[in-house]
C-alpha cells in the first residue's frame, strides 16, 4: 500500500470528521449562526427574499465552481515544462465566445424575471391605506406610533402576528434605515419623505434589527427590537399604552415628578397626563414597561437609569441628552419617578 503524505491525512480526516459532526447534528454552530439571519425568515416578505437568495446561491456557486475548476485545471494541465515548444497561437473561437455571452445572458434574464416577481410580492402598492404603525427615526432612537389606536411609544415595536401590517417610515433629522433581517426588507427613512413597507410575521417572538444607514456618532446603538405578539398580547399592549401616565404614589417618586417638571425635561420628552410634551426625545409615558433603554444599548433598570442621568455622555457618547449635574438625592427621586411609569 502506498504511503500517503501527511497533508493528505490531515485533510481527509478533517473532512470525514466534519461530515460526521453534521450527520450527527453535533455541529451546534449552524443553527445558532442562523438564529438572527435573513436566511432564517420569520415573516412572509423575508421568506420570499430568502427563497430568491437560495436560487441565487445555487447559480452563483455553480459559476464560482466552473471558474475555480477551470482555473485550477488549466494551471495544472498547461504549466510550462522545460523545453516547451511555443503553444498554438489561438486568437479566437466564435462558438466559445457566443457561449460566453449566451449563458450569462440567459441567467441574467432568468434572475431579472424573479427579481420583478419577488419585488412586486414583497412591496405591493398600498393604495392610500392608512398605516398601522408609523416609525420615525431620530438621532439615535425610534419614535413608534399606532395612529388608529392613538398610542405613541419608543424603541420597542410591537406588531400583531399573522396579518400584513403596513409600516410607514419617516425621519426627523438625517437618513436612517429600518432593517430586521428575519422580517424582510430594509427601507430608508428620509426626511420629508414617507416610505412604507409591509411586514407579515409568521411566528410570535422577539426579533432584533438595527439602523442600517450611517446616521452619526451613535449609529451603532440604534438597535431595533420587534415583539411579534399574538392577537391577545397585541391588544393588551395597545390597551396598556392608551391611558395617560401613572401618577406617582411614593413621596420620593412625587419629588421626582416635581424635578422632572421644573428642569427642562419636558421640552424634549413627553409624558402624557403631565405638562411634559416634547417630541425630540423618547416618549416616557410608559417608560418602565420597556425592557431596554438607550435604543437597545442597556437593560432598562434603576441602576442604568441612574448611571445615564449622572453622566449621559459617559454612557452613550454623542447623545443629545444634556448633563443636568443633579445631586444624588434628585437623581434618586428622578429614578424613582421614571421606574414607576409602567
Amino acid at each position: 500500500m502506498l504511503a500517503k503524505p501527511l497533508w493528505y491525512h490531515f485533510f481527509a480526516d478533517t473532512l470525514v470528521f466534519s461530515f460526521r459532526l453534521i450527520a450527527q447534528r453535533q455541529l451546534s454552530v449552524l443553527p445558532n449562526v442562523l438564529s438572527t439571519s435573513m436566511m432564517n425568515p420569520a415573516g412572509e416578505q423575508a421568506r420570499r427574499i430568502a427563497q430568491l437568495t437560495n436560487y441565487f446561491f445555487i447559480a452563483a456557486s455553480f459559476v464560482l465552481l466552473v471558474v475555480t475548476v477551470l482555473t485550477v485545471l488549466f494551471l495544472y494541465k498547461f504549466r510550462a515544462k522545460a523545453g516547451d515548444a511555443e503553444p498554438k497561437q489561438i486568437k479566437r473561437n466564435v462558438k466559445v465566445e457566443l457561449v460566453m455571452v449566451g449563458v450569462p445572458l440567459a441567467m441574467v434574464v432568468f434572475f431579472f424575471f424573479l427579481t420583478v416577481k419577488t419585488m412586486r410580492a414583497v412591496l405591493p402598492q398600498h393604495h392610500d391605506r392608512a398605516p398601522d404603525v408609523i416609525v420615525t427615526g431620530h438621532q439615535w432612537w425610534w419614535e413608534v406610533q399606532y395612529p388608529l389606536a392613538n398610542v405613541t411609544t419608543a424603541n420597542e415595536v410591537h406588531l400583531p402576528v399573522g396579518k400584513p401590517v403596513l409600516v410607514e417610515l419617516k425621519s426627523a433629522d438625517v437618513i436612517h434605515d429600518w432593517w430586521v433581517p428575519e422580517l424582510g426588507n430594509k427601507m430608508d427613512m428620509i426626511p420629508d419623505r414617507e416610505n412604507f413597507l409591509w411586514i407579515t410575521v409568521h411566528e410570535a417572538g422577539y426579533y432584533q434589527g438595527a439602523c442600517s444607514e450611517f446616521c452619526g456618532t451613535q449609529h451603532a446603538w440604534m438597535r431595533i427590537q420587534v415583539y411579534a405578539d399574538s392577537d391577545t398580547d397585541f391588544n393588551n399592549f395597545i390597551t396598556s399604552h392608551q391611558p395617560v401616565a401613572q401618577t406617582p404614589t411614593s413621596p420620593l417618586a412625587q419629588t421626582g415628578e416635581r424635578i422632572f417638571n421644573t428642569m427642562t425635561c419636558g421640552d424634549c420628552h413627553r409624558i402624557n397626563g403631565t405638562a411634559a410634551n416634547g417630541d425630540d426625545a423618547p416618549d416616557l409615558t410608559h417608560f418602565a414597561s420597556r425592557r431596554t433603554m438607550l435604543t437597545g444599548m442597556l437593560p432598562n433598570d434603576a441602576r442604568h437609569v441612574h448611571q445615564f442621568l449622572a453622566n449621559p455622555q459617559a454612557v452613550k457618547s454623542g447623545v443629545h441628552m444634556p448633563n443636568f449635574a443633579l445631586d444624588d438625592t434628585s437623581q434618586n427621586a428622578l429614578v424613582a419617578y421614571l421606574t414607576q411609569l409602567k
Binding site: 435573513m38 427574499i49 430568491l52 437568495t53 464560482l64 434605515d177 432593517w179 426588507n185 430594509k186 442600517s212
Partner: peptide, 18 residues
C-alpha cells in the same frame, strides 16, 4: 457574483448597508 446580489432588488433590500 456578490455584486449580482446587489442588482437583484429583493436580495439587495436585505444585504445592502450590511
Amino acid at each position: 457574483l456578490t455584486g449580482i446580489m446587489f442588482a437583484i432588488v429583493p436580495i439587495d433590500w436585505q444585504v445592502t448597508d450590511s
